[in-house]
Design a protein around this nucleic acid. Sequence first.
DNA 1: GATACAATTGTGACCGGTCACATCGTTGAT
DNA 2: ATCAACGATGTGACCGGTCACAATTGTATC
Lengths: 336, 336
Amino acid sequence: MSRSHVTIRDVAAYAGVSHQTVSRVMNGSERVSAATKARVEAAIAALGYQPSAIARSMASGRTGLLACLAPNLTDYTFASMIDGAEMVARQRGYFLLSASAQDEQTFAALVAQLIPSRQVEGVMVIDPYVDGRFQHLLPDFPTVFAGARPHDTASNSVSLDDVQVGQTATAHLLRQGHRRIALVTGVLGENCAQDRKVGYEAALRAAGLQIEPDLIVAGNWQARSGYDALMHFAQSGSLPDAIFAQNDQMAVGVLRAARDLGIKVPSQLAVIGVDDIPLAAYFEPPLTTLRQDFARIGQEAANLLIQAVEQPTGLHQHVQLSATLIVRQSTGAVAA
Amino acid sequence: MSRSHVTIRDVAAYAGVSHQTVSRVMNGSERVSAATKARVEAAIAALGYQPSAIARSMASGRTGLLACLAPNLTDYTFASMIDGAEMVARQRGYFLLSASAQDEQTFAALVAQLIPSRQVEGVMVIDPYVDGRFQHLLPDFPTVFAGARPHDTASNSVSLDDVQVGQTATAHLLRQGHRRIALVTGVLGENCAQDRKVGYEAALRAAGLQIEPDLIVAGNWQARSGYDALMHFAQSGSLPDAIFAQNDQMAVGVLRAARDLGIKVPSQLAVIGVDDIPLAAYFEPPLTTLRQDFARIGQEAANLLIQAVEQPTGLHQHVQLSATLIVRQSTGAVAA
DNA sequence: GATACAATTGTGACCGGTCACATCGTTGAT
DNA sequence: ATCAACGATGTGACCGGTCACAATTGTATC
């Protein structure tokens, strides 16, 4: 503002070369004589020249900016993916602009603002299946979906194998001897809730058990819905042996309800969650869960996105990661 | 790439006006006749014109980008501030680019990359006192510090009144009848840990009690350090009546240690934390804590920053928010 | 009817880089 | 000795907006 910036032409004049030569020095001195290069570098240092990122973007058409859109930035799972993506992005020369879109409308506005203005080179969408938000994306714009498996959309994606998650969790409970295994789902409109349910049902069927619709309760990912689910079973008078909550938050809600009802976990009721949230081991009892490597999901997503930006082939890649079972005390063996 | 973009001059030619008139229509039609305006708008629609954010930045010198630098993006407290800041920023026409800097060196690199290139118009630094990172910031560049009170630096800031936090937490324990109140601190190099300690000591003194150095243990904000702290007291043979952990994570660690030691909370030991993390009510027993409105801190910080960007006065503002006591079951009255 | 003035619109430069191509001197092959 | 090829460097256009200022038109005033 006060002092106008030093430009590439100022440096050129100072060094007695052309502005193009300065540009060459800045961009890795391809074919510049050592003497000239030294002179230019001295001039850069003397004048304190700093290239303008905007001018560079203007001329090259590249901004070095990626956007990350998530329902919110506070949820541990989203935040971890963003963190992982950000580290990879920066390492590879990009910055990550994150924004939260609670609803589809906000999401559409955000996309309309970021993409056509060519401000960002690619978009990473976290949990795009909460509503129809993926429809607002351009099919030919570099995009990657992270954290939920696309069922019907052609795009890059990094997701967890949610069917496997459902199976593993349920199989673990079966192995412990439980038979009446209840399910508390996430928001059923989301693929990952559906897939985990599919895995749950597959595991039960594989064990020769019937699927009892009464044992399936729809939750909403919040702890409170886990609490309510167990209260519901208690009121209906038929408690399950075990509960598979589709995330840790709800599992923690179940634990709390069990305490309030005087139900002992794990001896009377086994509880398993999904995510392995940071304090999972500190609940009472410590929560058995399936660990997801969210940072890794974010990293893979960033890598895929950058590849799509730099070498647009039109081909889509899908990376699927698996969760690992972390056994703690909330799922002991059935009481003898 | 394939199809070159529609520019303002294409629109002008199509509408039969000058490019400048199109520009005027784009920027809120100051003094453009209704007929011309309609014609230009028709041309814009017909050609699908989308202004280039980069070209706009190039010409205007403004990028509409703010940066947010935090030690990481996953910590609930940081993420909440970022989320709050992002919402305000977007509402006011800015985008927020967030990046994590674990150490001072990364932070310095980040600043060197973002600021001199004029890519961002302002920087928000979350928890700048973990090391000397604030020293890398330019004094005349729009900056705001969020989440920790600057002791020695002239700058905008939004922070919690940590002395008050220490006092309130300690006073609550005193009110419950506790006398031997231990303190588990955060990283002592950080101002907020120091300030909370000052508040703790002030409250004790105000109650006519001595400050016993043996009751003060240095933690590191992690749950594990809270766990270790109580174990340390148990081993030393002199358990306190109550523990004030400087954040909830450590308080939760204390709760876990108490369970492992067979110490009943709150009847044998009261525990209070700070932050009110999302699942605080789901631990055993539900955790009494001081709630911080992190989203609000982020919002205020964004507002301050945008003000500094838009009206650079050189004056610094400090906003200090206070925490509210949330009483749950981890701090009952002393056993009769 | 001439002049002043405001409203509307047009012109060209400019932001600060990069790109394509031109130029120049030097070297190696014929 | 001549020409091609190549390395080093320079020239000007260009990216797509905004800005300052000029030009044009219409309207009010005298």
